[in-house]
């Protein structure tokens, strides 16, 4: 398969996702209910308590964290689609089409990333409405969106890996439920890393969510574009998770 074929396969996988979203956009909105409540209810209440001095306005502080939490949940749940496709026979056929399996995994990861990034718009608007002070520089907003797609690709890769290994929806949902909340709480999404106990701090520093939330805070709140270190950390995470997903993906139909 040549280079253009490879790219075209990735884009076609994304196209499937966009067409699906166009036919049935409801999930995007139902998924947004929870994060919107986090910002509006939890954010506003905690802002009154002033539990974390030094973070400034609390609603503004958690808006990037909650956006990421929501996007991550969607990306992590993406694999369930593959479990369904596997049960339906769709994957059997897809894997007998003469296309690169790397392109399938990359394409599905990017598709998951784009699906997850829809949360960015909804939650951001909700946060602004309840008073979050977001820097509305278009370039910053755009880079923020790209960052979310990028890291959500990595989380979708992780989800594909889990789906390929566990293969049934019960097991898949079980493990996703087990990892998504801890991932959220052991990150800087709701509170700064400095106030965490030492061992949670270590986990938070190994958590890709922490770096993504860092980037979003810098760009969306402070207009600061010094994000290379964080991007590097995310690239390491993406490379590992997508490569592992590819390694296991062929096994999904076995």
């Amino acid at each position: 398969m040549n280079y253009t074929g490879f790219i075209s396969c990735i884009l076609t996988m994304v196209e499937v996702e966009l067409r699906r979203l166009r036919h049935d956009p409801i999930e995007i909105f139902t998924r947004a209910i929870q994060p919107v409540l986090w910002v509006i209810v939890f954010g506003s209440v905690m802002a009154k308590v002033r539990a974390f001095p030094g973070v400034g306005d609390y609603v503004t502080f958690i808006a990037p964290g909650v956006i990421m939490q929501s996007a991550t949940f969607i990306a992590l749940a993406y694999g369930i689609m593959l479990v369904f496709e596997r049960e339906a026979g769709l994957l059997k056929r897809l894997l007998t089409v003469p296309i690169s399996r790397v392109a399938i995994v990359l394409g599905r990861s990017l598709a998951g990333g784009i699906r997850a990034s829809t949360q960015y718009i909804i939650v951001l608007i909700a946060a602004i409405i309840v008073g979050a002070k977001i820097n509305l520089n278009p370039l910053g907003l755009f880079i923020g969106w790209l960052t979310i797609i990028y890291v959500a690709m990595g989380f979708t890769g992780l989800s594909i890996l889990i789906a390929s290994t566990l293969k049934t929806r019960e097991r898949f949902m079980g493990i996703i439920g087990a990892i998504s909340m801890p991932l959220f709480f052991a990150s800087n999404a709701l509170y700064p890393v400095d106030i965490m106990p030492e061992f949670i701090k270590i986990i938070a520093l190994g958590n890709p969510l922490t770096y993504t939330v860092n980037i979003l805070r810098k760009i969306l709140i402070h207009g600061d574009y010094d994000i290379l270190v964080d991007l590097f950390a995310l690239t390491v995470f993406n490379a590992i998770s997508i490569m592992a997903a590819f390694k296991c993906f062929s096994k999904i139909i076995e």
Partner: peptide, 23 residues
């Protein structure tokens, strides 16, 4: 395959279009 191998949330034409691109 024996089982159903289509994207049921897409139209018949869209399914063919996607596969024509993959092919």
């Amino acid at each position: 395959p024996q089982e159903m191998s289509l994207w049921t949330e897409l139209s018949g034409f869209e399914n063919m279009l996607i596969y024509s691109k993959l092919y």
